[in-house]
Design a protein around this nucleic acid. Structure first.
Lengths: 251, 251
DNA sequence: CGCAGAATTGATACATCTCAAGCTGGGTGG
DNA sequence: CCACCCAGCTTGAGATGTATCAATTCTGCG
């Protein structure tokens, strides 16, 4: 579990120069003067694990970047069926310039810090400087690719393949942030409950639980506690996921 | 394969001023001078229904807009399972600036005309003029919303709801292009075979066929021939689709 | 220590898939 | 002009994967 030790603002500094996502977020390409203008319109907000950040339909007067922690985008049907349509990791962007209201529920699944920009000034800045729009386009295209990969998972993969794919994706993203020696077994903490996993994968939580047990029984993964997963053989996991074995990214 | 490109395009004119998608495509915001530069780098290609436009992994030396006709984006697993991850209608954009190779198969499902731009000049133009990038961002955000709506469909809807949703979406898009009197029953021609529908909806073609028959039996739709669909009561169809009944777009 | 939320496990139901057979309508050649 | 053909589609019967309903069993925490 992500510990909720800190009740104060969880950042050492609010200076963009010290920001952990400075080089990956929507501001990645900004020059010093652009950064200064962003700095004027920004403010931080913190949320505890489980809190709702935004309700679908809410009026949005800001857009934001995830600084630390993890959040989900969820869509809900009238009868309560829910589907997670996006996982927001540090540096991911929330909100849509030009849109009045939120289209999805945003929920913190771990403690979360967001860097928010007042919407109107942000939109104005986008008009006068190209770097933000360029970076946002790039990030949106990446998200679109991720969404399409998820469509393949939801439409065509078996429950077992879905679980293996989710673990592989979390492990890969984890590795991208904290690179490890090639030889070690990969270890991760699942940032989602079984229920959240089921909402992401289009399954029930019972099926998620059963398939995790099955992968464990078959030696594909090793579980310690509820959330800690060791992957002794990453290629084996990829085979189980149904994806191309050569872990190549999209070309 | 793509060598079968038809020699003569089926357009009356190759002048951007006469273009049917001039106001909706990636060039929508361009000024006359920008349009002139685009005109220099553009060329048309035509495809027959069923032809593959692009193979996943192909080197891409162009990006393009669909001018007339319909195409699909498809992702394929090693064992042959297929998922359509996008439907390309007139004005939709194909290709990703900055990317070398195609990520998906693109297939013409009807006769198709595309307006292609040589990639390098297009990328250069994007750097020097903001209007193309702005419009592309807007279009990409719309596609991302559509992809997320589809994730809900794939993950949570029943086969019957999936079919109803697909018909509703095609009808809505059709209505957007050719507005009709409110009182008339909506009529459309399905631009997809049963197999393509199954690949879009994450079903088998037999299930698609059975559910279409069921909706017909229940009077939700009226079928004439294989492709022609009449919708006597659009609200009824929306109920069956599981979506919010007030056909409101995303807010 | 004991409680509550989270997770596991079991038994059964059911939606969709799979395999198989037959239909339909538009095009073609005799 | 008709008979035939064949891709696309429909329908049927049975198999199967996942959902549903219902207990338990963990695990972390006050």
């Amino acid at each position: 579990m992500q510990n909720k030790t800190l009740s104060e603002p969880r950042l050492k500094s609010t200076d963009c120069g010290d920001c952990p996502i400075r080089h990956r977020a929507v501001c990645a390409r900004c020059e010093t003067d652009e950064l200064a203008r962003l700095e004027e319109m920004k403010y931080y907000r913190s949320f505890e694990a489980g809190q709702t950040v935004i309700w679908s339909g809410d009026r949005m007067d800001f857009v934001a970047s995830v600084v630390t922690g993890i959040a989900t985008l969820t869509q809900t049907m009238e009868d309560g069926r829910r589907q997670i349509v996006g996982l927001l990791l540090p540096s991911d962007f929330v909100g849509r310039p030009g849109r009045e209201c939120a289209a999805y529920d945003v929920t913190a699944t771990t403690d979360l810090v967001m860097c928010c920009f007042r919407k109107k000034p942000f939109e104005d800045l986008m008009l006068t400087t190209p770097h933000i729009g360029q970076r946002l386009l790039e990030m949106t295209l990446d998200e679109l690719d991720a969404a399409r990969e998820w469509m393949l998972l939801l439409g065509r993969k078996t429950a077992r393949e879905k679980i293996a794919s989710l673990i592989a994706i979390i492990a890969r993203r984890h590795a991208a942030l904290a690179p490890r020696r090639e030889t070690d077994a990969v270890q991760i903490d699942l940032p989602l409950t079984r229920e959240a996993m089921s909402e992401y994968l289009g399954l029930t939580l019972e099926t998620v639980s059963r398939q995790i047990s099955a992968l464990k029984r078959d030696g594909v993964i090793v579980i310690k506690g509820k959330r800690h997963v060791t992957i002794p053989d990453f290629d084996r996991l990829l085979e189980e996921s149904g994806d191309d074995s050569d872990g190549g990214f999209l070309v």
